[in-house]
Amino acid sequence: MSRVTARRPTLRVTATGQITRPDTLAVEEPLEIRLGGASLTVTMRTPGSDIDLVHGFLLSENIIATAEDIVSARYCSGTDENGQNTYNVLDVQLRAPTTIQPRAFLTTSACGLCGKTALDDVRARTRYPIPADGLTVGAGTLAAMPGTLRARQAVFDATGGLHAAGLFDAGGALLAIREDIGRHNAVDKVLGWALRENRIPAHDLILIVSGRASFELVQKAVQAGIPMLGAVSAPSSLAVDLAAESGLTLAGFLRGETMNIYTGAHRLTGIQH
């Protein structure tokens, strides 16, 4: 059985009757990230692309800037009740020491603080400021990206329970897609791919997500230098504020030929500004 999906019994109730049958579900398991043997954090994720996830997470938390900042990333020993390796602990060796403390991350430290504090924190930490010009994308090309992403969501087709994130070029080509039970993990996985492919800062890429655009997802895009983020659903107010503050183009409700452009409309061609 794949570690990405699992089968569980379920009682299916319909207007014409009911039946007991197995259902395919997305797997959710903890991944403990360690730095030099010391526990850093635990995230609940769908197994798969864990190395990309760790690279993307450390990039978005400003702990690393390039793939070369990581000497190694290895699974630690850990077994389940059957004696099998769980592959749920990854130990990362950094090239240089860090003073980061466990769970001392922007997405948790900003909780309970005002929006301006959170925005100032991201601006101070960003290694790759987004250039004001450079990337331009046709509005029709951007509108087609969610459909391209959806067509490649194989695990979602089987379970209906995963988020997806994809990186596109300005011509609409999908370069990388990752799925995960957590939208933030899906984004970290594609950012990790970009980092390992030497595509960071990603000033020429567009990030598309299958759900809403939260502050956290905008923050991750900004940390990677991505100039455009598109979401199938709505952004939050603080996400829009951060996008405006950082010079990121933020589009929401990307559905068919319609979209809402909240910030950075100058990067889109084929629309009236």
Rank of each mutant, 00 (worst) to 15 (best):
V122K: 08
L31P: 02
A154S: 14
L162W: 01
K220F: 02
G36C: 09
A158T: 12
I70C: 05
A118W: 05
T66W: 02
V222P: 01
G270Y: 07
A151E: 12
V187Q: 00
Y87C: 05
G182Q: 13
A164Y: 06
A67I: 08
G192M: 02
A173D: 12
A104D: 12
D133H: 10
L53D: 00
E245M: 10
F215D: 02
R8Q: 09
Q223P: 00
V190C: 03
R95D: 05
G211Y: 07
P9R: 08
D133P: 01
D50I: 12
T136R: 11
T136Y: 00
R196P: 01
I70G: 01
G247N: 10
R178T: 07
D23K: 14
T86K: 01
D120G: 14
E81S: 12
T249M: 02
L31Q: 03
D188P: 04
Y262F: 15
T148K: 15
A231I: 12
S39V: 09
A65C: 11
R152Q: 15
T141K: 02
R152Y: 08
G171H: 09
P9E: 07
A96D: 02
L35C: 03
Q18N: 10
M145Q: 05
G17M: 02
L217V: 15
A243L: 06
A26G: 09
G182W: 03
L268V: 14
A213D: 04
C114Q: 14
N82K: 03
T258N: 05
L248H: 06
F168T: 12
N260C: 13
I63P: 01
S236P: 11
L229E: 01
I261D: 04
S77E: 07
F57E: 03
P97C: 09
I33N: 01
E68W: 03
N85V: 07
L254W: 10
A151L: 13
A151Q: 15
L35G: 01
G171C: 08
L195A: 04
F215Y: 14
L119P: 14
T159Q: 06
T249F: 01
A213H: 05
G172F: 14
L175H: 14
Q272W: 04
L191G: 03
G230R: 12
K116R: 15
Y262G: 10
G37Y: 00
N62I: 05
A231T: 15
